[in-house]
Design a binder for these strands. Structure first.
Lengths: 350, 350
DNA sequence: TTGTAAGCGTTATCAC
DNA sequence: GTGATAACGCTTACAA
């Protein structure tokens, strides 16, 4: 029985050890082996030990595809997010992965720029048990998404709300507002927003994002003028070019005395641009970043930030998803965590 | 025929659309549908179009598990590497993912700290088509690994050599040597190495890594004393604590006039420690990082680095792996890329 | 406690 | 050009 069946099988990759092989050697049925491996059902200690020994000897490992086909479960979670060269997403993935490792899940990393069709395909029930989505703002509004199975086992982790699905939201509004009011208290007059846009002219109507929106509202309330600095007028600019773009703004319009930056990374770029332009932080210009990217505190002066409670959010997201996987008819799970302003040297006028 | 068969099927997750469903509606066999979907075999234009239309209508997507079981191919590549909160790995994964996206592969992200058994299991033929490993120095020496199928479709991307497998190696030696000689040329006397260790006392014998090894050799040749600063005496220290640990060294032993750091991140920590201690960069101390982490150039002064040719290495790695997947009997593919010193302000004595 | 049979959704082979 | 059939390796349900 241990001879390889003819034909078909040999065309495949090198023969792998199957349940049947173990069963043959151990002198039992493949079913018995299956039970032993999964630790289910009643098996006598004698056969159990024998089977385990043989499995060990033959170096048996389960075929995930076959198991998936039979059970509909994979033990794999898809994560759809932005580029990992952004520290924000990299840290998020890192935190999520740590959680999943503990729960015995693995991670399939998908790119949010992929075709929606490909995403749906990749995350079909048969391929992953659940999905975590971050930074794909518009996904939850698409009917193809809402009608798909994907949405059944999906948790959003975002700064947006997603009314019809589970989500963990990070609310930046208070943190950003506090940062700007802090600048105003210190007497700053020209507080500009440093963001990203591919439009040539700034148009407040595309302020779909909390940070920019809150900036505009807060500045308005204080009867000051808003000012938008584009840190990436063209896609695919290098960091050096982006620094130059910001510097060019200073050269043309003079320097604001406060900068609210979309990301921590942009705060770093802006800091460098200020240096090259010849402005001091914080004496001439106060600076704050819209998230707390690692190593902002290593700058001199250390860069302030609106710190996202990323760890808390990731833990919660994973809890939500596990609950959803175990019971897909659970009521909507939605929670908001608040980001907090971290005042470092870049916000301290001496 | 479109009614759902009794029993078994209903216990599973919500019924998915299968080849058979499409076939029933289109009035053909599932085999024909399969051929149309895969674009293989000779199918009349009439049936092809009809099948495609029905598939579209029914929103059919292939079941990956079933396809894998039948073909032995998954279209998924496992990547095993260190923590993504290190910018080095995050960028690597980001670059690799971009490559894979173009070739129609997806990525399964595994953690190098997982049990070897789990890794082997996860990367069995049935689960992924190939594996990329980075930073798992010792893996290629383990017999369990070498005897496994994993090693058949595996490329290492590392600063080490892995004699028995495909690899792309990043060679740091010349870059590090150049950095140190540059410091010596500028008259620096106390050039210290800032690294990571969990031993209390420094022991040159654990210099398995190119950077430290090259540092020791170069310092020796110049008849200077080596000096080791531990930037992480305990695992799980926060960045603040690590900064303090470095600062503590300065307080106890005075400040070196040159620092060679294992990573870019450590250079950032060391920079901050120097600031807090009251030393100026580069006037008092020259600083260089062992890899070129993004945003080092945003510091004031900008931090120098031994820049890894990461993009080149990732492209090469992916080429190697694809070649290996297509032909597993290919001779060993091994290539070395050299890292180059990037001199920024932190290495320029004025 | 163990075994039998059927089924998961796809593809390879070969006959029509 | 199209279809029938077996096979991929595992698990569920039920019989022995």
């Amino acid at each position: 029985m241990s001879q390889i069946p003819s034909g078909f099988r040999e065309k495949r990759r090198s023969r792998t050890v199957t349940l049947q092989d173990v069963a043959n050697v151990a002198g039992v049925t493949s079913m018995t082996v299956s039970k032993v491996i999964k630790g289910k059902g009643n098996i006598s200690t004698a056969t159990r030990e024998k089977v385990l020994r043989v499995a060990e000897e033959l170096n048996y490992t389960a075929n995930l595809a076959a198991r998936t086909l039979a059970t509909g479960r994979t033990g794999i979670i898809a994560v759809i997010c932005g580029e990992l060269d952004q520290a924000y997403y990299a840290n998020m993935v890192s935190l999520l992965q740590a959680q999943m490792l503990c729960s015995g899940y693995e991670m399939r990393l998908l790119h949010k720029e992929s075709e929606l069709k490909d995403l749906l395909n990749a995350t079909k029930t048969s391929a992953v048990d659940g999905v975590i989505v971050s930074g794909a703002h518009d996904l939850s509004e698409k009917p193809e998404f809402l009608n798909s199975e994907l949405s059944q086992h999906c948790v959003f982790l975002d700064t947006f709300e997603h009314p019809n699905t589970d989500y963990v939201r990070i609310d930046l509004r208070e943190g950003v507002q506090e940062a700007i009011e802090h600048m105003i208290t210190l007497g700053r007059q020209r507080i500009a927003y440093v963001g990203v846009s591919n439009a040539t002219e700034f148009d407040p109507s595309w302020a779909v994002e909390d940070r920019l929106r809150t900036y505009l509202a807060t500045i308005n309330k204080a009867n000051k003028n808003h000012e938008f600095i584009n840190s990436r007028p063209r896609i695919d600019m290098t960091r050096e070019e982006r620094i130059d773009a910001i510097k060019l703004y200073f050269e043309r319009h003079g320097c604001p005395d406060g900068l609210v930056c979309l990301h921590g990374e942009i705060a770093m770029l802006a800091f460098r641009a200020l240096r090259e332009y010849g402005c001091r932080v914080p004496e001439d210009v106060l600076v704050v970043g819209g998230d707390d990217v690692p190593f902002m505190e290593c700058f001199a002066p250390s860069l302030s930030a609106v710190a996202h409670p990323l760890e808390e959010a990731c833990v919660l997201t994973w809890q939500f998803l596990q609950a959803r996987i175990n019971n897909s008819s659970l009521p909507l799970q939605q929670k908001t965590c608040k980001a907090k302003l971290v005042v470092r040297e870049s916000l301290q006028s001496r």
